[in-house]
Design a protein around this nucleic acid. Structure first.
Length: 347
DNA sequence: TCTGGGGTCCTAGGACCC
DNA sequence: TCTGGGGTCCTAGGACCC
């Protein structure tokens, strides 16, 4: 056996629902839907549905109202982000505790692990056991020769389809992926899949065989060639362990009742700006730009932004700048959502 | 059944400068 | 006389992901 460099993608199963069931064991086996304030009559969407709820067709991103229609017996729970963040950190600590590994966190419920080993399946089994022992949570592990393949491999490792781990490398990429739609690739969404289909590219095989320069001309100088690389299973192989430096900080709110009075809109923008300002001050990261997002009824969404005269940590100045940007909007249609974002200077 | 919240990166056009 | 080409910043929008 030779020691090689591997990428493992660790993905917690039905994370939010599983965490809620842990603190309320009587919910085990029941359809559980986590999202919003846990009130399916409110404007909010599903953050995570348990596998039992998914059997009724409940999916992430679906309005809670729809989820309730599909699964009237589901238990609806409010999202408790602070708790999920804490549990997530426990899991990441378990991953980082393995000797010699590099961990790159991708969200609350997933991380890449870079490791040199002659038996990645054994490492995957060790990780699953360690996470289970420390947190009582289940996870699936994708094994790959780069991050793209490891990430996609996780889909084949999930409960119901896989046995907890799955290996996807250059050796079986064509066999496993070539007949699948381009949408199966990490980075190709519904819109891009349609654009590719319009050009006669439906499968991963067809994408892999496309001339990168031709796609550059049609879909952009960077994106076009990148899509072809995705089709070929090529991606970053080095997992980065250095802490992520955020580019921006933002808050947004969807109002349960649209704001019809522009005075209320101004007031809410100031409140959001002050929340953002408090956070960037706590992080000591001055805002260089401010952006304001407005979603009018029914759903048209626009963003306006401006570079500040000088980067600032001052809440009054930041809020004033946000109000100034808000004035770039001239429509006075009812407002469904407001957002304020601070962008940091690039180091 | 009307569509959350928090992010990142890419693209393209225009301004502006040399 | 009304024409060049490159580089960079600013801004808005699009797309994707968790």
């Amino acid at each position: 056996m030779t020691v090689a460099s591997w990428v493992l993608h660790v993905d917690l199963d039905q994370f939010l629902a599983a965490v809620e069931v842990l603190r309320r064991p009587e919910l085990a086996g029941r359809p559980v839907v986590v999202g919003g304030k846990g009130d399916p009559t409110q404007r909010a969407v599903v953050a995570t549905a348990s596998y039992e709820a998914r059997r009724f067709g409940v999916r992430s991103g679906m309005p809670l109202r729809t989820a309730a229609a599909r699964c009237p017996d589901a238990v609806f729970l409010p999202a408790d982000n602070a708790h999920y963040e804490a549990v997530s950190q426990e899991v990441m600590a378990v991953l980082r505790a393995r000797p010699g590994v590099v961990v790159e966190v991708m969200g609350w419920d997933e991380a890449f692990v870079g490791a040199d080993t002659d038996d990645p399946e054994a490492l995957a089994a060790e990780i699953r056991g360690a996470v289970r022992a420390a947190t009582r949570l289940e996870c699936s592990v994708g094994i790959g020769d780069n991050m793209l393949r490891a990430k996609i491999a996780t889909e084949f490792a999930k409960p119901g389809t896989g046995g907890g781990a799955y290996r996807l490398t250059a050796a079986n990429w064509a066999e496993v992926m070539f007949d699948r739609p381009t949408r199966a690739l990490w980075g190709i969404g519904a819109k891009t899949a349609r654009k590719l289909a319009d050009r006669g590219i439906h499968t991963v095989r067809e994408l892999a065989g496309t001339d990168p320069a031709a796609l550059a001309a049609e879909l952009g100088p960077a994106l076009g060639p990148w899509y072809v690389q995705l089709g070929r299973g090529i991606g970053r192989a080095e997992v980065e362990g250095t802490p992520w430096v955020a580019r921006s900080r933002s808050h947004e709110t969807t109002f349960q009742t649209d704001l019809a009075d522009w005075a209320d809109v101004r007031e809410q923008v100031v409140a959001l700006a002050r929340r953002v300002a408090a956070e960037i001050r706590a992080e000591d990261r001055p805002a260089a730009r401010v952006a304001v997002k407005v979603r009018f009824t029914p759903f048209s969404t626009y963003t306006r932004s401006a570079t500040l005269e000088a980067p600032t940590l001052d809440a009054d100045r930041f809020a004033a700048a946000a109000l100034e940007v808000l004035e770039k909007f001239t429509s006075r249609r009812p407002v469904r959502l407001l957002g304020v974002r601070a962008e940091f200077t690039r180091p």
